[in-house]
Amino acid sequence: MEKVLEITSNDHIIMIDKLCKRILGYPEILGRIIKGFIKESKDVSLEEIIELIKGKKDQEGNSYFQQLNNVIDIAHHGRVEFDYLCCINLPQDDETMKRIYLDVEIQNVENPGYAPLTRGNDYLSRMITSQNGKEYDYRNYDGMKKTYVIWILPQAAKKRDGHVNRINSKLENISGSTIERLESYDKSEQIMIYLNKDHDIKDKYEDSDWIKTPLVIFLNNTYDLLVKKEVMKEYGFEEIEKEVKKMCNLGEMIARENIEKGHSIGLEQGLVQGLAQGQKLERITLIKNMMESLQCSMQRAMDVLKLTADERKDVEEYFKS
């Protein structure tokens, strides 16, 4: 039974992961990411960017925005699957157009055994190489378009909550004063957005709150649907409720499965150590399962289970030991 529950929970977690990736592509979310962190969007309003993503076309009937195949498979160099890959043409004040290629990645684990930025360098290289034959060739490398990888870390450490880093190429004069054209070397950037899943939505971020708070709320299951609806209303989201509701429902399914799993484990241990001790271990196991599966805090898990003061004390003492 425990194995069946584990498989079922894993399937639901995979479904939540897919829903998160779908949420990234909603115009109201993706538009905010582009407006907030893509430098080439400075001449375009958020409302205009959202319209471009929704399918606005130019006078020739070409779309400004295109979601791309999220898999790039280069012969003899391996296969990469992106979370959300797209390109967009951004109008400029000088009446020119700048096309950028953008990959948005959700990274739940800060330290997966390597630096995400090194993985990002591989992604950027593939995004540039995949333009060969379309945007540029050996006769005109200047046709190469700028690429971005934006990392969203919705479960970063609390001390990094709200931090954003930009990593790009810089010109350094080693000797002399010759300046290279910016557009010749400014071809790739990575953005790291650190968010903490226990962020208090009453505590507004000092900058870019209009995108950081929605991201941390929609990409975590720390808050229930009612709170997420309040955020949607406060920040002006209209078309995202369906996916957010699905995520919350899947989270509840995982919670119920873990309650059953925790009950089963608690009974087995209780036979050996006595009913009282078994119930204590059952609660602790259940709390641990919920924290892992629902990506929520210990306090949130205890609130959901409506533990008494004494039960909370037992759990808190266990996690302190």
Rank of each mutant, 00 (worst) to 15 (best):
G61H: 00
N89F: 00
S169W: 15
N140K: 05
K134V: 09
K187T: 13
S321V: 09
D198Y: 15
M232Y: 00
E51C: 05
L102H: 01
L24R: 05
L307N: 03
D303Q: 11
I217Q: 14
I7R: 11
D203I: 07
K98I: 11
E234L: 15
F237A: 15
D73Y: 06
I191K: 10
K98S: 08
I14H: 13
G274E: 14
E40M: 06
S130A: 12
D93Y: 03
D83E: 10
G143N: 08
F218Y: 14
N111L: 11
M15S: 08
R79N: 05
N258W: 03
Q155F: 13
E60C: 03
I74R: 05
K245F: 05
V272Q: 10
K306Q: 07
E47T: 13
F237S: 15
S175E: 10
N62E: 13
Y194W: 06
H76G: 02
K229P: 01
C86W: 10
K134Y: 00
I74G: 12
R283E: 00
G25F: 02
D122L: 12
K313Q: 10
V164K: 10
Q92V: 08
K54D: 01
M127E: 08
Q279T: 00
Y205F: 09
K202C: 01
R160P: 02
E40D: 11
K233D: 13
D142A: 06
S9P: 06
L90H: 09
R283A: 02
L124P: 04
N220C: 14
G120C: 04
Q131A: 03
I13M: 06
G113K: 14
H12C: 08
D103W: 00
G278K: 15
S177I: 10
